[in-house]
Amino acid sequence: MRKALITAAAIGLTTVTAVTATGCGAADMTKQSSPYANAAGTKTVTLSVQSWVGARANAAVATYLLEHELGYRVDTVQVDEVPAWDALSQGRVDAIMEDWGHPDQEKRYVTQKKTVTDGGELGVTGHIGWWVPKYFADAHPDVLDWKNLNKYAAQMRGPESGGKGQLLDGSPSYVTNDKALVKNLKLDYQVVFAGSEAAQITQIQQYAKDKKPFLTYWYEPQWLFNEVPMVEVKLPAYTDACAEKGTADPATIDCAYPTTPLKKFLNTEFTKKGGKAARFLKNFTWTKADQNEVAQMIAEDKLPADKAAERWVHKHPEVWKKWLK
């Protein structure tokens, strides 16, 4: 008891000392890195990992190479997309390896505050859309045009869709216009959020196992295609006019998602002082096939991320040797 109190007091005192040690001066919390950084006597790079597996594949390979080739220690932090920008700006993470396009954040942090620097393209092109399983598309080819979706609404019903067809959406953090699309295209569907990508994948796998029809929001590149082949449903073509309208008021969007070249972003401070690690991350670029290879090993073969990265690195030295320059 007394000991517990003494311990508490001691740590409280340490905290107070820590406060006083930081002085009476300004303490810019946007410049405070993770307490775990550089702890083991080596330099640390902190990478933001988003919840989808592609992003984990990037991070796994980057981590492996940074640790084994360049002698860094890497921490990965799982943060959702938008908050990751804030963390990147504050220096709590050093790099985002795969960004799907956040114009607002880019404007705020890259253009205005200049706390984040463009890290170049990842080499992978991302695409969001609506997909149905191949077994269903083969049987009903006309489902691939959005105009015929209402015909199949009854077959797509789910427990959460309230009598309408179910359009399965994933994590709330993903970029999505689906509610507006359903409304504006007058579809007899209800957007049902799985809540997380994990939940969505589980659901898709279950449907696939039973060969049930479903309509889902999904994106490329994604390893799940290898396990559950899916075909994209054509939505009204993406146009700049439609995109502009959408920027002004997201509720008015009535066309498909754009195709996005995925980009990397680095903390500005880190680009200046990060040395070899920063250069390496800037150089990091690979293809959709490369990424999927690693992603599949992680998500489907349940390999630990570092083992997956190790296998890929041993197989494809020609790809990563360039990044070390």
């Binding site: 740590i11 820590a18 930081t22 810019d28 919390m29 405070q32 307490p35």
Partner: peptide, 29 residues
Amino acid sequence: IDNRDGHWLFLYFFGHISNAIITSVRGVY
């Protein structure tokens, strides 16, 4: 978000709290 690195409230109050926490966690770690 815009004032986190400039306003006195953050620099002289929240900043110190944050700093103290990070320093302590780091120390214990």
